[in-house]
Design a protein around this nucleic acid. Sequence first.
DNA 1: CGCTCCCAGGAAAGCGCTTGCCTGGCGCGA
DNA 2: TCGCGCCAGGCAAGCGCTTTCCTGGGAGCG
Lengths: 338, 338
Amino acid sequence: MATLADVARRAGVSPATASRVINGSSKPVADELRERVLRAVADLRYVPNAHAQLLARPQRSVVGVVVHDVSDPYFAEVTRGLQRVATERGRLLIICNSYRDPVRELEYVELLRGQQVAAIVLAGSGYHDAAFTTLLNEKLAAYEATGGRVAVIGRHDHFGDAVMPANATGGELIGRELLRLGHRRVGVVAGPRVLTTITDRLTGLRRALAEQGVELPDQRIRYADFDRDGGARATAELLDTSPAPTAIVALNDSMAVGALALLRARGVRVPEDVSVLGFDDMPIAADVTPTLTTVRLPLVEMGVRAMALALDPTSGSPRVETLPAELVRRDSTGPAPA
Amino acid sequence: MATLADVARRAGVSPATASRVINGSSKPVADELRERVLRAVADLRYVPNAHAQLLARPQRSVVGVVVHDVSDPYFAEVTRGLQRVATERGRLLIICNSYRDPVRELEYVELLRGQQVAAIVLAGSGYHDAAFTTLLNEKLAAYEATGGRVAVIGRHDHFGDAVMPANATGGELIGRELLRLGHRRVGVVAGPRVLTTITDRLTGLRRALAEQGVELPDQRIRYADFDRDGGARATAELLDTSPAPTAIVALNDSMAVGALALLRARGVRVPEDVSVLGFDDMPIAADVTPTLTTVRLPLVEMGVRAMALALDPTSGSPRVETLPAELVRRDSTGPAPA
DNA sequence: CGCTCCCAGGAAAGCGCTTGCCTGGCGCGA
DNA sequence: TCGCGCCAGGCAAGCGCTTTCCTGGGAGCG
């Protein structure tokens, strides 16, 4: 690897001059020397060692993002928003997947801290685990104490800046819609029990139903993996309870798609026999059959806001932005069968 | 930010000793000192400055990935494969989105080079642009000259290690299937013209059709954005040609989904009136209605192989692995209408 | 009791870069 | 002609860490 010294030698100047030319320093340099340095850079295919640069001039221009799983459409959308803002502001993004493993999440935070990133964005639900939360908060606090910025998306973990989707409200929207359609036996396909997002959505749903005296007994809630297959499996279990629910609420769209697939396989008509609702309004929701009634979350916008929070110098106390949820009615829901 | 020196001071030892304790160096250190250092680390919440470490002991443990767009399911799957292997081997992954912009791609390669990453993986089609290709190759060559490893997925750009999906073969599979079903008027929803992947798939398709004397005139090929909406738009155009095609081949599944949506909106029955085929076999392909006939590419496997290539010390000449394509018959295709 | 050997721990160099400070040479004015 | 000021360019320190090399002291042996 060519170093600055190599360039300087080849151009017949001092490293200081070479550095100034390369960085476009304000200090003037004679055209001829500049020319020579530039040529040397090109000849040697010199690329500055970012580590050395960052050591000498600690300026943080990289932003780290820790995500549950970018392959998940939910995070794909959020990440798109994060990227957009980061790019606009000339920041490089480092994306890390924790795969919903709190330990790995912690490790990544540590790692990003070591990389001296300008900001850390944590995207994705928090966990019901006090010990973990404490640990995470300590690490984040230590990082912020050194001037790093932290923003979280969709988790209560952290006391600092946050962007929160209205999960509970979304749950309520679903509950009201269900009541409006006359459903009183509701089955829930929930995601992993440990995620706070699940609890929030469930709480909202339960609250809305309770207003009309409809209960949500435990055996009608099935916890499953947050993906298509998990949704299918949980739905199968719900169908086998008796009396079977007339509506199935999946707490994200991937699981809802799984539910739809299973119902089709079993010859159950949607929405005539059973209504199905999702959550998130992922792009696929409009392309499955029947199209999926769901709660829209402004995913890209969440990413945009979070990155803005992370990049803008903090103006005052922790800022929490709550983004609205909105019911999107499509063809997978209908009146409860008589 | 606490530094090693701070830790050493607090523990009453030299930085050298502190460093040895922290890195678990083989050099023995008295238990008491070790103890003191560890406590100081904890008290100070010390995290080593990765840049300084990397400067002092240039060891490359990070792998950089430049991808067209992680939000695209195709790349989401590939990335999953990359991640898996990287994680197994204890490597951190830095994911960068070029958003199909060759210039940004170049910038990211440069940037990763500066970050002294152990390897760079380029995922995604190359471009029909000789100048760009030359530039890219130069940069990659310079990087490899310094001991970096490069692997590419699905592009002919580079002369080094590569994982190639059988794009042309996939095109042929589609062509043969079409002929088998009696289609002779075939419309193609192609992606961006500049991508080599598109050309490859098209070439295979054309070759297969030509074997039975079926032509693919230019006006039956529509270039569009590589996403759902692009697919819908291109399909609309194809429908308006006359005579309209009896089969529509979308060169990726996202566009195929768009095609399906548009056909439904126009009241065209699939597959009775028009057959639709996709490419890639993304997860959604089995969940749309009708389920999508497509060509399966082993996306995750491609990521796995590429990361293996990138991480394993090169054994001999450039290794190119071609992964097979496979036709997946589903409900969106049927015999050509009479 | 004195010597050597060995080992724990510290001093210091150096990784590649930036930048404050200094120097030497030039141009200008008196 | 001499002296001053100014500015381009170089010197060197220092960013935080690792690691080689060295030192001093204790243990073991004669």
